[in-house]
Structures are given as structure tokens and as C-alpha cells.
């Protein structure tokens, strides 16, 4: 009897997993346009987030939480609250990192990582990355979700980011989560929780620590 229960659970589990999978979209242009429409309608975005970084070689994940603020077109405050406090302020070309309440200078290598982060995060929110010639785009969907996957063409950029996937729940005009695969191939999932769209954000959020 137990064998049948295990078998049934296995079938249900595998069915559940398959139901989660997204297949290549029949009409990729339509999927892309759905994302672009969402991006175009967004003047500001505020959301708490939960970030889960996986390690390929161990079964523990690194979970971080924080708050994100975005104001069209290039203002972003990416604030980590747990387990450590970091604030990344992006305003136009400028990227500033605040750690333990102090602004930090960082090495050339880290600057390159931040530059890529800025391009990717702001690009995902304002939609510019979807029209960028620097990425190959693939579109996927299932009954409930849409996915745009972007793969950098530049080998140098691929060293830092292998792919970026943006997910949107069908019928909801906002990003659900992002999955970034960094240069090592390890995925980082960023889920947006309790999002507010097009609500006023105080301007000092993007300038003050």
C-alpha cells in the first residue's frame, strides 16, 4: 500500500514540476510586447524583496531581504536589510555603495560588477534591456507565467552574467521575480513582494543613505 502512496506522490510531484515549466512561447513578440507595455506604464516602483542565492556545490542557500525603489528613468535604490545592510544607489551613470552607514570605494573589478548590475536591474525595470542589441532574447510561457530570458552576446559580459530571466504573472502588470545566473552559473532569484507601482517616492530616497 505504501508503495502505491509513494508512487502516487511521485506522479503528482512530477506533474506539479512539469506544470511549473515554461515552454517556448508560440508568439515571442507578443510576450516581449507584454513586458514592454508593463515597463512603459511604470513611472515608479517600490517593493520589498527576497533574494535567494543558490550554490551549486551545497544544499544551503543565502537568503537576503530588503527594499527596492525605482523612479523613471535611471534612479534606483537597492537596499539590503538582512542579513547585512548594503545600499546601492544608482542615479544616471553614478553608482554608489553604502555599507555600515559609510560610502565605500571599490576596486575596478567590483566597479565592473556594479556597472553590470546597474545595466541589468534598471534595464529590467525600465524595459531598455529588452530592446538592447547586446542580448539574445528567448520568450517562454505556461498557463500562468511569462518569461523573457536574456543572454549577453558579449563574451566579456558573460563572464559576469550568463543569463537574466524576468518573470511576470499573466494578468498582473508587474514583475514577479528575476533569476540571474552569474558568471559561475549559480542562480540568484529575486522575488518582489508587496509592490507599489506609480506611487510617489521622496526624492531623497535616491540621494541619502
Amino acid at each position: 500500500m505504501n508503495k502505491y502512496i509513494v508512487l502516487l506522490a511521485g506522479i503528482l510531484l512530477s506533474w506539479g514540476i512539469q506544470a511549473q515549466d515554461l515552454a517556448p512561447a508560440k508568439n515571442p513578440e507578443q510576450v516581449k510586447n507584454t513586458f514592454l507595455k508593463m515597463n512603459a506604464s511604470m513611472n515608479s516602483f517600490e517593493s520589498s524583496f527576497r533574494q535567494t542565492k543558490e550554490f551549486s556545490f551545497m544544499d544551503r542557500s543565502l537568503i537576503s531581504t530588503g527594499q527596492l525603489y525605482y523612479q523613471k528613468t535611471e534612479k534606483l535604490r537597492w537596499e539590503y536589510k538582512e542579513p547585512n545592510q548594503y545600499i546601492l544607489l544608482m542615479n544616471g551613470e553614478k553608482v554608489r555603495l553604502i555599507e555600515d552607514g559609510k560610502e565605500k570605494a571599490y576596486s575596478v573589478g567590483v566597479q565592473q560588477i556594479f556597472k553590470n548590475i546597474k545595466e541589468v536591474f534598471i534595464g529590467c525595470i525600465n524595459g531598455e534591456i529588452l530592446n538592447s542589441a547586446d542580448y539574445d532574447m528567448q520568450c517562454f510561457e505556461n498557463e500562468t507565467m511569462l518569461q523573457v530570458k536574456l543572454i549577453p552576446k558579449d563574451e566579456k559580459l558573460k563572464e559576469y552574467i550568463q543569463s537574466i530571466s524576468i518573470f511576470m504573472e499573466k494578468g498582473k502588470n508587474q514583475m514577479s521575480y528575476l533569476v540571474l545566473k552569474d558568471g559561475s552559473g549559480d542562480p540568484t532569484k529575486i522575488e518582489f513582494l508587496e509592490s507599489k507601482i506609480n506611487q510617489a517616492i521622496a526624492s531623497d530616497v535616491f540621494t541619502s543613505f
Binding site: 542565492k53 556545490f57 547585512n84 548590475i117 552569474d182 559561475s184
Partner: peptide, 24 residues
Amino acid sequence: YLGLKYTDATNFRFSVTTGMGNTM
């Protein structure tokens, strides 16, 4: 952050990531 898997004194693997989770 640093994630470490330690099997024994001569077998271990680790990765160092930025505060934002990018592997360095």
C-alpha cells in the same frame, strides 16, 4: 559572503560572493 563545503582537511570547495550575491 563565503559559502563553504568542507569534506575533510584536504577536500573543500567555497565561493565568495558580493553583498548582492554575485559570485567573485
